[in-house]
């Protein structure tokens, strides 16, 4: 879903570039302008692409508050799924910390209504994909979170920085002499 507007921006760019590729300097200027604006559009749309209910900043928590990924995504090292934290976990701190920030105020609204925050998952496979993934063995193999999830520590709202394809999974498995039996993931 999130990728779609950005992809449209990319598609637009070569078309306009082709139309504007005149011989003159003016044409070149226009082309670069078009490319620049397309790039800007891409960046803006990616940044605002998130449909998360709260603009959670990963970088504020990891870089500034020195938290670990596993502080909130508890299952990452021990369970199949890394998991998203319950609002209870957020409120452990945010009942007292940074309570006046607008996003934290929105968080407290969920808390007061006794609702969980309806976070949107950005990674994961569709049930129909017939792919099974287990976090725990990958954590045991000391695969860094960033290898599959990108540099989340520098992101505000997490974006899908890495595309998970069978090619990328198998390449990593082969590089690390892990199994490349189909049954390892497809069952």
């Amino acid at each position: 879903m999130k990728g779609r507007p950005a992809a449209r921006a990319v598609r637009l760019e070569p078309a306009s570039a082709a139309r504007l590729s005149c011989t003159s300097l003016w044409g070149e200027f226009l082309v670069s302008l078009a490319m620049l604006s397309a790039l800007l559009l891409l960046v803006v749309q990616t940044a605002s692409a998130s449909e998360q209910p709260i603009g959670f900043s990963h970088t504020a928590h990891i870089e500034k508050a020195s938290m670990q990924c596993t502080d909130c995504h508890e299952g990452a090292t021990s369970r199949d799924s890394a998991g998203l934290p319950s609002i209870r976990k957020c409120m452990l701190c945010h009942q007292f910390i940074a309570t006046d920030l607008p996003e934290v105020v929105r968080l407290s609204e969920y808390w007061e209504r006794k609702h969980e925050v309806p976070w949107e998952r950005i990674y994961g496979f569709a049930k129909t994909a017939a792919v099974q993934f287990r976090h725990a063995p990958h954590a045991r193999a000391e695969i860094a979170c960033s290898q599959c999830h990108g540099d989340v520590a520098s992101m505000t709202v997490a974006v899908k920085a890495v595309t998970h394809t069978m090619g990328s999974c198998i390449q990593c498995h082969r590089d690390n002499s892990a199994t490349d039996d189909c049954l390892a993931c497809h069952f």
Binding site: S78, K127, T128, A130, V131, Q132, R134, A136, P137, R140, L183, A184, H186, F187
Partner: peptide, 28 residues
Amino acid sequence: VSIRPAGVMEKCTFCAHKIKRAKLDADA
């Protein structure tokens, strides 16, 4: 266990997912 969509064959797997789980548990 994956849900098998229309148009594919399925059969007993010897509960391959349980074998996998046992291996992971032992590993852990």
